[in-house]
Design a protein around this nucleic acid. Structure first.
Lengths: 228, 228
DNA sequence: CGCTCTAGTTGAACATGTTCAAATCAAGAT
DNA sequence: ATCTTGATTTGAACATGTTCAACTAGAGCG
C-alpha cells in the first residue's frame, strides 16, 4: 500500500522513467485512455514494476498535480515579488493557474472526479493529497500577506483557504469551458477576483459585522474540527 | 447507448427487477462493492440483460437519485403546504435532504465522485442527469415562492439554482461527517440557512447594490451561455 | 569465488465493467 | 399450425486496474 521509495540508483531511475512515461501519456491521451500497461511499455518496464513504485494509477495523478503546482509556483514568482496590489496579485495568480493547466485541459475532466471522491487518495480533504493542498494554501497566504492590503486578522486567518477553494471552483468552470482561448474563464476570473477584493473591504461595514462573524465562526468550526 | 425503454410487459418487469436489485445492493454494500454480476444474479437475469436496460452502471445510480429525490419531495410536502416562513421552509427542506439520504450515507461517498465527473452521465451540468437537476431546482423555486418573503425579482430568478448548489455543498459536507447522529451537519444547516436568509435581506442595502448587481450578472452570464 | 540478503522485476492470474453476435421468446399475420 | 418479426436474453469474450508468488540483480562479506 505505502509508496515504495527507491533505495538504489537503479530504483530511482526506474521510478523516474515510469513517472515521466505516465505524465507524457496522460497529457497525450488523457487519464482514462492511458492504461497502466501503456505506461509500463513506454517506460520500458513490466506492469508489475509500475505498481512497485506507485500503489495505484491515482497515485500517479498525484505526482501530476505536484508537477503542475511547481510549474504554477514558478510562473507567478516574479509577479509576487514585484506587485503589491492584492487585486492584481490575485488575478495574476489565478490566471496563471488556468494558463499552466491549459496543456492538460483534456485530461482535467476525468481527473476532477477522482479528486472529489472522498475515498480517493487524491481527495484534498484528507488523503495523500493533503500535504500538497497545504502547499497551495500556503501559496495563497503569500499572495495575501505580500500585498499592501490591510486585511482584518480574523479574515486573514482563513482567506488563504477560501482562495484555494475559489481556485478549485475556477478550475471546475474551466474544465467545462469550450470557448476559444478559454476566454470565458479569463473573464470570470477578472470579474470574481475584483469582486472578492471588494467584498473583503465591505466586510468592515458595521451592518455586515454580524454576518461576518457568523461566517467566520462557521468556517473556523468546519476547518478546525477533525473529520468533517 | 440510449436507454432501452421496455416495450413489453415482460421487459417492464425485467427492468424493474434489475433496478430493485441494484438499489438494494447499492444500499447494502455501496456503489463500488456492488458488481454488475451481483446485480444480475440477485435480479435473476443474465449479465447482458442488465446492459439491455441500463447502458452503464452509472445509469443505475441515476435511478437511485431519482428514488431519493422522490422520497425527499414527499417528505417535505406537508411542510411546504403549511409553513410560510422562508427560513423555516429552507431549513426544513435541507434537513429533510440529509435525513432522507441517511440510509445511503455509506454509499454516498463513492457516488459523489461520479457526479462531479464532467464526462459522466450523472453530471448535473449537462448529462443525462440534467432533467433530474431541473426538478430539484424547481423544488427550491417552490420553497422560495411559497414563502411570505418578498424577494427582489433579480435575486428570485437565480435563487433556486443557488439553493440547489448550496444543497450539493451540504451533501458533500455530510458525506465527511462522522459525528454521532450526523449532528454537525444539522448544526451547519441551521447556521447556514439563517445566514442565507439574512444575506438576502441585506442585499437591499445601497452599499451592496453594486456587488449584488455584479454577482447576479456573473451568475446570469454563467448560467445562460451554453457549454460552461 | 560463493553465500546471503535485500531491492527490484516479472508476467500470469484475477475481478469487474462492457460489448456483441447468436439464441430464444412471444405475438401477430397468413 | 407455421412463419415472420422484433424484443428480449444469454454468456462468452475483451480490456484494464490490481495482486502476488516466483525470479533476478547486485552489493557486501568471508
Amino acid at each position: 500500500m505505502a509508496i515504495a521509495a527507491p533505495k538504489t540508483r537503479r530504483g530511482e531511475t526506474s521510478r523516474a522513467v515510469i513517472l515521466k512515461a505516465a505524465l507524457d501519456l496522460f497529457q497525450e491521451h488523457g487519464y482514462e485512455a492511458t492504461t497502466m500497461r501503456a505506461i509500463a511499455d513506454r517506460a520500458g518496464v513490466s506492469l508489475g514494476s509500475s505498481y512497485h513504485y506507485f500503489p495505484s494509477k491515482e497515485h500517479l495523478v498525484l505526482e501530476f498535480y505536484r508537477h503542475t503546482h511547481e510549474l504554477h509556483a514558478a510562473a507567478i514568482a516574479p509577479l509576487l515579488s514585484r506587485e503589491k496590489d492584492l487585486s492584481t496579485r490575485l488575478r495574476g495568480t489565478i490566471r496563471a493557474v488556468v494558463v499552466t493547466c491549459e496543456p492538460f485541459h483534456a485530461v482535467a475532466g476525468s481527473i476532477f472526479s477522482t479528486v472529489a471522491n472522498p475515498a480517493s487518495p487524491l481527495n484534498p480533504f484528507g488523503g495523500a493529497a493533503k500535504p500538497l493542498r497545504d502547499e497551495v494554501v500556503e501559496l495563497y497566504a503569500e499572495v495575501v500577506s505580500g500585498s499592501g492590503a490591510r486585511i482584518p486578522k480574523d479574515i486573514a486567518e482563513f482567506l488563504p483557504l477560501i482562495l484555494w477553494l475559489y481556485q478549485m471552483g475556477i478550475l471546475y468552470f474551466w474544465i467545462f469551458d469550450r470557448s476559444p482561448g478559454r476566454l470565458r474563464t479569463l473573464e470570470v476570473i477578472d470579474e470574481t477576483t475584483e469582486l472578492i477584493v471588494r467584498l473583503i473591504s465591505l466586510a468592515n461595514l458595521p451592518v455586515l459585522r454580524g454576518s461576518r462573524n457568523r461566517i467566520l465562526g462557521l468556517i473556523k468550526d468546519i476547518v478546525e474540527r477533525p473529520q468533517g
